[in-house]
Amino acid sequence: MSDSADTMENAVETQHGCPVQDSHGQRVLHASRDQYVSVIKALADEGYEMCVDLTGVDYLAMPQRTIGFDIQAERFEVAVNLLSLSQRKRIRVRVQVPADDCTMPTLFDIHPGTEAHERETFDMFGIVFTGHPDMTRILMPEDWDGHPLRKDYSQGSIPVQFKGANS
């Protein structure tokens, strides 16, 4: 995705080998899938001790987006929000996940608190987190078909109908 032009130009620095971008005053770090775990680990050692949030985005409906930094935009993206309690700082790590290989390494061993988030992301987007101890659906029934938050999954709304309620 291309942010507004001026913020793009600010993004010159790198951190742990990943380009860092400023988005509305927040630090955003673009990691590749291979770097992902090691970057999170390095950030955890750096003081970002809490993983606040982990979620996915399906960019199927935005095919032309660009990220910059020579990063290939893929269909899925995983966004991880890290928080440093001691330094009162936040950082966001964004990782591209291709549609034909929907897997990610798990963060469970670094931040056990991501367990539920990863299950939710799996449930909603179908991104499999390898190494996760319990990769099952969390919100939908176990036998549910499909992953509801994907863009090719319809909202499932049915027109309002008034059935023949026998009264």
């Binding site: 939908m140 509801p148 999954y153 319809s154 909202q155 499932g156 709304s157 049915i158 309002v160 059935k163 309620a165």
Partner: peptide, 16 residues
């Protein structure tokens, strides 16, 4: 009664 504003995949559209 009818699903209300949540007319989507997750909610039963009316408990009846």
């Amino acid at each position: 009664s009818s699903g209300g504003m949540f007319n989507n995949y997750a909610i039963v559209q009316g408990v009846d």
